[in-house]
């Protein structure tokens, strides 16, 4: 009663309709270091929201704060408008989560592992077979998790997150440790989730390309601070792609392509051209190729080069981040 009254009196209620996650000045300090430092997130409902940052940026800490596993030193969290501190259980009812390292009971089968969560969520038994087939683990459901590959463990983690059809799915580095094929499968799978389940997906990663390929929205975190937040297209607009050219005559090519505002640099034995925008990059590349060929210059390498996370950070924070070795 009291709670409801207070909610009514507040002029602007946090977590308006259509916002899956909203945080306000979220802070978490570990031994004097701010792992999460004033994070304001606003995750629109229905989005695949990429949470991008190098190792140690504060992604996992943020996610643990969102789930009430860690208590913030400051700030507020609302999930679909439910204040996490006041109403943790109601807020978490709409959340399914898969952690960075998939943790399961090794001595139990995949099915038994899911059954544990199913019982705690008081769901129907049929949900287990549904999520197992969604992640394509039905054929190994009755095998002990001890015998699962890392990819299978990740998928079992996803299946567990999907139990109860939560409106919000939170995945912390779901491709962690997977091989390239596994990474692609995981990415493609996550991309289908909003359509398939209607859920909002919040997914963290330290690979720019990965987020670029699956996310509709993105927040970039660096040293605990959000340095960019917005639609994926906005992020793309921040940096136009570059064209890398390897050819038989750098000097002539450079003279031919340069001029005007366009910058042509020579890097590692290749010419690098900054394109003005992402739109039409392919057509520009083809045109340049044709032009060089017509001038009698052989082109043996032509690539639209993606930006690396390093370069993006360089642009966003004006400093090179410390990247950990993978």
């Amino acid at each position: 009663m009291k709670r409801r009254l207070r909610g009514c009196l507040r002029p602007v209620k946090m977590g308006a309709m259509g916002i899956a996650i909203e945080t306000e000045d979220l802070r978490k300090r570990f031994r004097g270091v701010n792992a999460v430092d004033g994070v304001d997130l606003s995750v629109p409902e229905g989005a695949i929201f990429g949470f991008l940052g190098p190792n140690g940026a504060g992604k996992t800490t943020t996610i643990r704060l969102l789930l009430g596993l860690l208590n913030p030193n400051r700030g507020r969290i609302a999930i679909f408008g439910e204040d996490l501190r006041r109403n943790r259980l109601r807020a978490l009812k709409s959340v399914g989560v898969a952690f960075e390292t998939p943790a399961h009971y090794e001595h139990l089968t995949g099915r038994e592992n899911l059954d544990i969560t199913r019982r705690l969520l008081k769901l129907d038994k049929t949900e287990i077979d549904q999520v197992l087939s969604t992640v394509e683990l039905s054929h190994v459901a009755d095998r002990h998790v001890r015998k699962y590959s890392l990819g299978m463990r990740h998928r079992l983690g996803l299946a567990r997150a999907l139990l109860g059809k939560p409106k919000l799915l939170i995945f912390d580095e779901p491709t962690n440790g997977l091989d390239p094929v596994g990474i692609r499968e995981m990415r493609d799978f996550i991309k289908t989730l909003p359509v398939r389940t209607g859920a909002t997906v919040f997914v963290s990663s330290h690979h720019l390309a990965e987020i670029e390929q699956m996310a509709s929205h993105v927040a970039v975190i660096h040293l605990g601070k959000i340095v960019f937040q917005g639609a994926m297209d906005e992020l793309r607009g921040l940096h136009a792609p570059r064209l890398e050219i390897g050819c038989s005559d750098d000097a002539s090519a450079s003279a031919m392509l340069g001029g005007g505002a366009r910058k042509v640099e020579s890097r590692n034995g290749r010419l690098v051209i900054e394109l003005s925008s992402a739109e039409g990059a392919k057509a520009r590349a083809a045109a340049i190729n044709r032009k060089l060929n017509e001038a009698g210059i052989d082109v043996h390498h032509l690539a639209i080069a993606p930006w690396t996370l390093e370069e993006l950070f360089l642009q966003l924070v004006g400093a090179k981040p410390q990247f950990e070795q993978e």
């Binding site: 643990r64 789930l67 009430g68 596993l69 943790r88 259980l89 109601r90 978490l92 009812k93 959340v95 989560v97 952690f99 390292t101 943790a103 399961h104 009971y105 090794e106 969560t117 705690l120 969520l121 567990r160």
Partner: peptide
């Protein structure tokens, strides 16, 4: 240790259960 071992506390305590 059933939870410490495989690190399942986080999952267990992030469920909507007290």
């Amino acid at each position: 240790q059933l939870e410490h071992g495989p690190k399942t506390w986080a999952h267990l305590l992030a469920l909507p259960v007290p």
